[in-house]
Design a protein around this nucleic acid. Structure first.
Lengths: 230, 230
DNA sequence: TTAGAAGGTTTTGTCGACAATATGGTCGCA
DNA sequence: TGCGACCATATTGTCGACAAAACCTTCTAA
């Protein structure tokens, strides 16, 4: 049930949009992450308000939220534009991600309930099956779900907020727009497995080390693709 | 010149307020951090707009920014209230801080220019002198300045943003409202000195270890005071 | 020809009013 | 007496218009 939502919208978290601003924000974010609104573009409030059939106030508030996610940059009296994707930016982003998700894995090894860990193992099994079928879209969703569960398992609200509200959409933006369908998916599975084992053993230090290494590999992989494409 | 600003407003960074929203946001943030607007209070948009002599739209946007800093929590159709300060929240906050500032110190050891490191040593010396005079207000400002320089020295925009825009005001809120005038100031000086030495030697690993330890000590100190006060 | 100023145009910032939702109190009923 | 529905009130969400700032074009002068 919950996974269906994940696959459908790729916004795995119960951020139920209640106001029109919420809906507009989520729609804009989706379009930016997926490149429908291209990187670097100036966001005109008037234009967007006619396009999305809402008032300028709604657009303004949505843009403010996008700025909080670091998906757009805003200058007073000038306007907002979608962030540029650069190799340096990718490195900076992954430096932060490595540190924070390493920490998340460490905390998760201590703070996840036995039930949550059991669920994580179930997820890993189902992930293993889809890996064998070779459906990259499902793999991507599975990967995101895996990381999200560990982040939530840290039980640290600040950490969760920084990662999920703050940098995960940007990570996905790099992935999608650089065309990372991922030759690394199958190898990443083994890394996931070892991380889950460490968490199951409540080995916090090892979980952190393995997670950092896992993300470091991912970064190297992305950098390779990035330089190859340039 | 720059330090005068720091001492005057305790907002050490060139966030020049240009719009009235900027000014209102900064004013509200200051009042929340310093407890003039008490923790847990509901923020009424109408009330604030009459109090600060600006329109509701300005207040709304300011509140949105406060939410981005995690200084208020907002619920759709209900409203925003100032965050509560709890022992658990403090621990979570410092877990994140330790990880991120440790990383900042590591990156700073690599990325700071020789000139910036020289400036940091100058700051340390002047800090040493003020420590001897025993002026806690200056000491606090000096401490903040020290940490800010290292954070900026990391040259990682995400890290800088998360720490300075995101969690530093909340840290200061805990400090101010728990009355941390700080018996730890003088001992902290030695820790600062060793961190600067590591950075001067371009020893990234050591800088991270020392910074993490420094922040861990600070956390323990605050937890002691917090439990003592309860 | 180019640099700079002036004015018109476009865009963002701010405002007050209306619509929709939540809150609080009262009444009725079991 | 206690619980739930209903209505009045208050608060937030959304909108369109006005004010102010940035931009673009054109014109002038060195």
């Amino acid at each position: 049930m919950r996974r269906i939502l994940i696959l459908a919208f790729m916004t795995p978290f119960d951020e139920q949009p209640v106001t029109t601003t919420d809906k507009t924000f989520i729609q804009l974010r989706k379009n930016i992450v997926e490149g429908v609104i291209p990187s670097g573009l100036k966001l005109s409030e008037m234009e967007l308000s006619t396009k999305y059939l809402v008032s300028r106030a709604v657009i303004r508030e949505a843009i403010n939220r996008l700025e909080s996610c670091h998906l757009v940059e805003r200058k007073a009296n000038i306007g907002a534009r979608v962030v540029a994707l650069t190799p340096d930016g990718l490195v900076e982003l992954y430096q932060v991600r490595e540190s924070l998700e390493g920490m998340a894995a460490r905390l998760a090894a201590t703070n996840m309930t036995d039930e949550e860990i059991a669920d994580l193992n179930v997820l890993l099994s189902s992930h293993f099956q889809t890996v064998q079928t070779g459906e990259t879209y499902y793999q991507e969703a599975g990967d995101v779900d895996f990381h999200y569960r560990i982040i939530l398992g840290s039980k640290n609200t600040h950490l969760i907020s920084i990662l999920i509200d703050g940098i995960y959409h940007l990570i996905r933006m790099y992935r999608v727009q650089l065309g990372m369908a991922g030759p690394r998916v199958t190898t990443a599975f083994d890394e996931h497995k070892h991380i889950v084992q460490a968490i199951s053993n409540r080995d916090a230090e090892l979980a952190e080390i393995l997670m950092r290494r896992h993300i470091s590999y991912t970064r190297q992989n992305m950098q390779n693709i990035l330089t190859r494409n340039l």
